[in-house]
């Protein structure tokens, strides 16, 4: 028992080092003065000069702004569609197209991105030929593509939350006279709101992050942040990308750490309440 646990612990530590070493090195070298990112220039470092160049890089700022707008749109739309799909899958026992919907919501998650990207691009081209819409490729087609693969993730999150909670809550609401729409708005929705929120965040991150599908459907005019980064790093390392990465990593890390702390606080308070209630059992 001992040896196995020690082995597993060791692997865990090794794995965490493996996961974090690249990120740490990325951050460290963002303060390096040298253009040769990985050779530490101990005379002039640490420096914030790459952060300075970043602020004046119009291409990166434009791309970041486009990415944010697309990610906001994609996250918001995919949350609506994904919640509908997750609700249908979790709550409607049998309906026509159930297997189809179940299949179409899990497949995009594992589908190689080149295939999804190519197929969406060919769809948009065919649509334009047929009905004249969308006119050319750009932000609209990127957003449509992102909504499609993001909603798959939201569906899974919402569906698993709904399968996890007691269906008798919804039945109780109906029994007390609430019509299906009221049941959803007053009982189901507030209860799955945390899942929807994390689905939204997940969708935002995925959209913000996507490169391959976006490259297919972006067209020549619009470049998202990942596309700009990719074109820069394709032929080697550049120090301003390190600075950009550091900023992004810090934002995400702060968000995740804060939300984890908040969730643990809520959990603790709840446990304390439950203990008090049990102690006062009369």
């Amino acid at each position: 028992m001992r040896s196995r646990r020690l082995f597993a612990r060791g692997a865990l530590i090794l794995g965490l080092v493996f996961l974090y070493a690249p990120i740490v090195s990325l951050i460290v070298f963002s303060f390096n003065n040298s253009r040769l990112v990985t050779v530490w220039d101990s005379v002039h470092s640490p420096t914030l000069k790459w952060y300075g160049t970043l602020v004046h890089n119009g291409q990166i700022l434009d791309a970041a702004w486009l990415s944010i707008r697309i990610a906001l749109t994609a996250a918001s739309c995919s949350v609506v569609l994904g919640t509908l799909a997750g609700f249908a899958l979790a709550r409607f026992s049998q309906f026509r197209g159930r297997l189809l919907l179940a299949g179409m919501t899990t497949a995009p998650i594992v589908m190689p991105e080149v295939i999804t990207g190519l197929s969406l691009l060919l769809l948009f081209v065919a649509l334009e030929q047929l009905i004249g819409w969308p006119r050319g490729l750009g932000a609209v087609t990127i957003a449509l593509a992102h909504i499609t693969f993001c909603m798959a993730y939201v569906t899974v999150v919402v569906q698993s939350r709904l399968t996890g909670f007691d269906e008798s809550l919804e039945e109780a609401a109906m029994d007390l006279g609430a019509r299906p729409a009221t049941v959803f708005l007053r009982v189901t929705l507030p209860l799955i709101l945390p899942a929807i929120a994390s689905g939204w965040l997940l969708a935002f991150t995925l959209s913000w992050d996507d490169l391959v599908i976006t490259q297919f459907v972006a067209g020549p005019g619009s470049s998202t942040l990942p596309m700009v980064i990719f074109s820069k790093v394709r032929f080697g390392v550049t120090p301003d990308v390190n600075a950009l990465a550091t900023i992004l990593v810090l934002i995400v890390a702060t968000g995740i750490v804060l939300s984890t702390i908040w969730m643990r606080y809520q959990q603790r308070r709840r446990e304390r309440d439950e203990q008090l209630a049990a102690a006062a059992n009369l």
Binding site: D166, S168, L169, E171, A172, A173, M174, D175, L176, G177, A178, R179, V187, P190, L191
Partner: peptide
């Protein structure tokens, strides 16, 4: 007649109190 229009109420085994 759907459940929300029946002159019937039910007490659930799990009580099904709305937690929020």
């Amino acid at each position: 007649i759907p459940p929300y229009e029946r002159p019937v109420n039910m007490m659930f085994q799990s009580y099904a109190l709305f937690p929020h």
